[in-house]
Computed example of a mutant assay.
Amino acid sequence: MVALTLLWIGKDVYHSVSQPRGFYIDPSDTHHVAYGRSLYVSYCAACHGSKLEGQTPNWRERGANGRLPAPPHDASGHTWHHPDSVLFDITRNGMVPGRTAPEGYESDMPAYASILSDEEIITVLAYIKSTWPDDILALHQEVNRNEWSRAQH
Rank of each mutant, 00 (worst) to 15 (best):
Y105V: 10
E106N: 11
S107A: 13
S107L: 11
S107N: 06
D108G: 10
M109C: 02
M109Q: 12
P110M: 06
A111W: 02
A111F: 05
Y112R: 00
Y112V: 02
A113N: 08
A113D: 08
S114E: 13
I115A: 02
I115M: 07
I115P: 00
S117D: 05
D118Y: 04
E120A: 11
T123F: 04
L125H: 02
L125Y: 02
A126C: 06
Y127D: 04
Y127F: 12
I128N: 03
I128E: 11
K129P: 00
K129I: 00
S130K: 07
S130H: 08
S130W: 07
W132D: 08
W132T: 04
P133L: 06
D135L: 08
D135A: 11
D135S: 13
I136S: 03
L137P: 00
L137M: 10
L137C: 03
H140R: 10
H140W: 10
Q141I: 01
Q141G: 09
Q141Y: 09
Q141D: 12
V143A: 06
V143E: 08
N144P: 04
N144G: 04
N144S: 05
N146K: 15
E147M: 14
W148M: 13
S149V: 12
S149H: 12
S149T: 14
R150G: 00
R150F: 00
A151N: 09
A151G: 10
Q152K: 14
Q152C: 10
